[in-house]
Amino acid sequence: MMLTKPDPQHTQLYLDGVSVSFDGFRALNNLSLIIMPGEMRAIIGPNGAGKTTMMDVITGKTKPDRGTILFDGDTNLTEMDEAGIATLGIGRKFQKPTVFESHTVWDNIDLALAGRRGPFATLFHRDGADDDRILAILETIRLSGRRDVLAGALSHGQKQWLEIGMLLAQEPKLLLVDEPVAGMTDAETAETARLLREIAQTRSVVVVEHDMTFVRDLDVKVTVLHEGSVLSDGSLDHVSADPRVIEVYLGR
């Protein structure tokens, strides 16, 4: 889409020429991608297209072999660890819902709340100081009634929402969401789309998803990944009509 090299200034997330190899396998191949502040973007692509690896390099789990990753236009993410990147304002939702199963719903949100993260800060943290913030988030994710239930006892869909709530509690500027509706019922899927759109009003969101109905529900710009780089992007209708996309992905 873009012919000249774009200016990273004013972007929320800026990936340029990012490559990662595992034992000779190129998981990401010269990947370039720009997310603007407040933008919501859906990423689709066949298995092995590099969607999860892309999340890994952005969040610091994997170090790229080459390339630039900038946050807020000037912060170089490739030199930071996961905790540092998270504190910067990037939240990540895993493919499999990962919540703290032996903590209550309330404590899950409490642990995720933006705040000081050092061991001594938490050791001397005063309980009850953040109750209002937690209540507000529980309201948003519709789990107010289950605040004292252990997270392990929640249904699959509720765990996904709890995890989204934890991300909200982090107050990130950018949310990376990996297959949020996998294994959800149709009603839960629709509810999740609504929840994500609500969240996207105040921050940038990147959603990786297989479910085409869900992507259509989101109604945002779509980027198609293939073999570790961008194959096509634009509206869902536009990429669906792209013959290269049909060949590698939708046509099968």
Binding site: E82, A86, E101, D110, L111, T122
Partner: peptide, 24 residues
Amino acid sequence: SKLGRVLVAIRDAESRTRFLGYRV
């Protein structure tokens, strides 16, 4: 303490804790 809850969080889901910004 809240530190204790972070410890249990590390025990149950270490990388989740890391992605929340805690230096495990």
